[in-house]
Deep mutational scan, measured.
Amino acid sequence: HTCEKCSTSIANQAVRIQEGRYRHPGCYTCADCGLNLKMRGHFWVGDELYCEKHAR
């Protein structure tokens, strides 16, 4: 898989955010504040991922 955020190959663990879309665990972050979304879930606003606070 290729990380959709940093565009590099994912060798080990990948986070599947949608069918066919993956990120490194470290790239699974809010587009606004950079908070890691692991164990928090994500919210779509347009084509970007946000934490609950910044999705509003």
Rank of each mutant, 00 (worst) to 15 (best):
R40M: 13
G34C: 04
Y22N: 05
V15S: 07
T8K: 15
A11E: 14
N12I: 12
D32G: 08
C51W: 00
K38S: 13
M39Q: 12
A31M: 12
A31W: 10
Q13H: 01
C33L: 02
K5P: 06
I17M: 04
A14S: 08
C6T: 03
D47G: 09
R16Y: 12
Q13V: 05
C51V: 00
R40F: 08
L35Y: 12
L37T: 04
R21P: 09
K38H: 07
G26D: 15
T8H: 14
R16D: 09
M39K: 13
K53F: 10
I10E: 12
A14T: 03
G34I: 05
P25N: 08
T2P: 02
Y28I: 03
S9D: 15
R56T: 04
L49E: 04
V15F: 04
E19F: 01
V15Y: 03
K38N: 09
Y50L: 11
V15T: 11
D32P: 01
R21Q: 12
E4H: 13
Y50C: 06
T2M: 03
E19M: 08
S9V: 03
R40A: 12
K5E: 12
C30F: 00
E52F: 10
S7E: 00
C30T: 02
V45I: 15
H42V: 10
C33D: 01
C6I: 08
W44D: 12
Q13Y: 01
I17K: 04
Q13G: 13
V45W: 09
R21N: 06
C27K: 04
M39D: 15
I10K: 03
L37R: 02
G20T: 09
P25Q: 12
P25F: 03
N36K: 03
C33Y: 01
G41M: 04
E4I: 05
T29A: 09
D32I: 06
C33W: 01
R40G: 15
V15Q: 09
C3P: 00
H54M: 00
I17S: 04
C33S: 01
T8S: 14
I10D: 11
H54E: 03
G34E: 08
T8Q: 13
C6H: 02
H54I: 01
K53E: 15
G46T: 07
C6W: 00
L35Q: 12
G46E: 12
T2C: 05
A55C: 09
H1Y: 14
G20V: 04
T8L: 11
E19C: 03
C51T: 00
G46C: 07
T8G: 14
Y50S: 07
I17V: 09
S7W: 02
G20Q: 02
I10A: 08
Q13E: 14
A11I: 00
R23G: 03
L49A: 08
K5M: 10
L37D: 06
I17H: 01
C30W: 00
T8E: 15
R16W: 15
C3Y: 04
D32V: 06
N12F: 03
C27Y: 00
E48S: 10
R40V: 13
C51A: 02
D47I: 09
G41I: 01
C33Q: 00
P25I: 11
E52P: 14
H54D: 14
A14M: 03
R23N: 08
R21W: 02
C51R: 00
W44G: 13
G46Q: 07
H24D: 11
A11C: 03
G26N: 10
E19D: 04
S7N: 05
T2S: 02
P25A: 13
E52Q: 09
L35D: 14
A14L: 07
G46P: 05
R16I: 14
P25E: 15
E4N: 14
F43M: 07
C3R: 00
Q13P: 07
N36P: 13
A14C: 08
H24E: 03
C51D: 02
K53L: 08
E4P: 02
A55R: 12
D32A: 04
T2E: 02
K38P: 11
A55M: 10
C6V: 06
Q18S: 12
M39A: 15
T29V: 05
D47Y: 07
Y22H: 04
C6A: 04
T8C: 08
H1L: 14
G34W: 01
I10S: 03
W44K: 07
K5F: 03
W44E: 14
A55P: 04
D32L: 09
K5Y: 15
H24P: 02
H42Q: 11
T8F: 09
S7M: 10
L49M: 07
T2R: 04
A31C: 08
S7L: 10
S9H: 02
Q18R: 10
F43Y: 08
G41N: 08
V45Q: 09
L49G: 06
S9F: 00
Y28V: 08
G20H: 09
A31T: 09
